[in-house]
């Protein structure tokens, strides 16, 4: 057996380097795969195309703004969101309090600003949880198939079949029965837990079908032919190629989880005072819609804008990552 170096120098292959005249796409896709000498991965391409989308820019700016708000609420308001002054109860917006005061005479503007944190924490952590749990289970189910897949899939179906609100009410009213008052951290984690437990089957299904498709690809065959271990195939070959749809789902789901948090709080099983959250504010406002509509309007508006921003971000990411669009 000769050494490749020796072969290369000895061979001086006639064919070699001939194709280098243009390091171009093959023309089958006109204009596609233009190579300007830069190294660009698929993620890089997605990023380039993302930056050109106005929807992405708008949603990213909103999300950035919300993040700053969650981290440093003091930048936006110096009013204590829990400070109640009953004499100001239900006052409508004015120069002093832009969004007016609520039933207890608390500043709604300050409460909306401070409520971002709870919403984002729930949204981000619940998304992380569902994506991690669902992806892992989905990857293994898709890769191994057979009875493992059958068991995991049926297990997921059980959770998927539960109506979300009902399931969450059951879980939360068990761990967090009315009348108890745990600290805000504990309540937030209970809400996150219930969202993750009831939502992971969706990511699991997305990941499983992506893994099933990726598993059939020839590059996985080639890796197996080289003797690659299952762990290597799962994490080196399947995961990077299945992540895109889950990420897209994740960014859209983040918005809906924030809305879910509000729903649960509204129903009285989620976050509760003393935690400041939009859901709690909406819940407080429900009785007084006719008398003090501003109490509902501002938190609900903030919620709608936030959810919309994440859903738009998800849409933009999907368009950028979808290979069929390019």
């Amino acid at each position: 057996m000769t050494d490749p170096t020796a072969a290369a120098s000895a061979g001086k292959m006639e064919t070699r380097a001939q194709e280098e005249i243009t390091a171009e796409g093959h023309g089958a896709r006109p204009g596609g795969g233009a190579d300007d000498g830069k190294q660009r991965s698929l993620w890089g391409d997605a990023w380039v195309s993302l930056r050109r989308r106005p929807i992405f820019i708008i949603s990213a700016v909103i999300i950035l703004f919300l993040t700053v708000m969650a981290l440093f609420p003091g930048l936006f308001t110096s009013v204590d969101p829990t400070k109640a002054d009953l004499s100001l109860a239900r006052q409508t917006p004015s120069a002093d309090a832009w969004f007016g005061y609520d039933q207890q005479g608390r500043d709604i503007y300050a409460r909306v600003i401070h409520g971002v944190r709870a919403s984002l924490v729930v949204g981000v952590l619940a998304t992380l949880g569902t994506v991690l749990l669902g992806s892992l289970v989905g990857l293994f189910a898709g890769f191994y198939g057979g009875w493992l897949d059958a068991i995991l899939s049926r297990f997921a179906d059980v959770f998927f079949g539960l109506p979300f609100v009902l399931g969450a009410i059951v879980i939360l009213s068990t761990f967090n029965p009315p009348g108890t008052s745990y600290g805000p951290v504990r309540i937030i984690f209970q809400v996150i837990f219930s969202i993750v437990v009831l939502s992971w089957p969706v990511t699991m299904r997305i990941m499983r079908s992506a893994a099933l498709t990726a598993k059939q690809q020839d590059y996985v065959k080639a890796a197996r032919a080289l003797g690659a271990s299952p762990t290597r195939i799962i994490f080196r070959h399947l995961l990077p190629n299945t992540l895109a749809p889950v990420l897209v789902y994740g960014s859209i789901a983040l918005g809906t989880y924030i809305a879910l948090e509000a729903t649960l709080s509204f129903l009285g099983v989620g976050l509760r005072t003393p935690v400041v959250s939009w859901g709690v504010m909406i819940s407080d406002a429900k009785e007084l819609i006719r008398i003090a509509p501003h109490m509902l309007l501002f938190p609900a508006g903030a919620l709608a804008v936030t959810v919309l921003a994440f859903v738009m971000l998800g849409d933009a990411v999907r368009d950028a990552l979808d290979p069929k669009m390019r």
Partner: peptide
């Protein structure tokens, strides 16, 4: 024994 080949690739239609 050896096939005659066309060297290189078809041109990119953008250039």
């Amino acid at each position: 024994q050896e096939l005659n080949t066309i060297k290189g690739l078809p041109p990119s239609l953008t250039a």
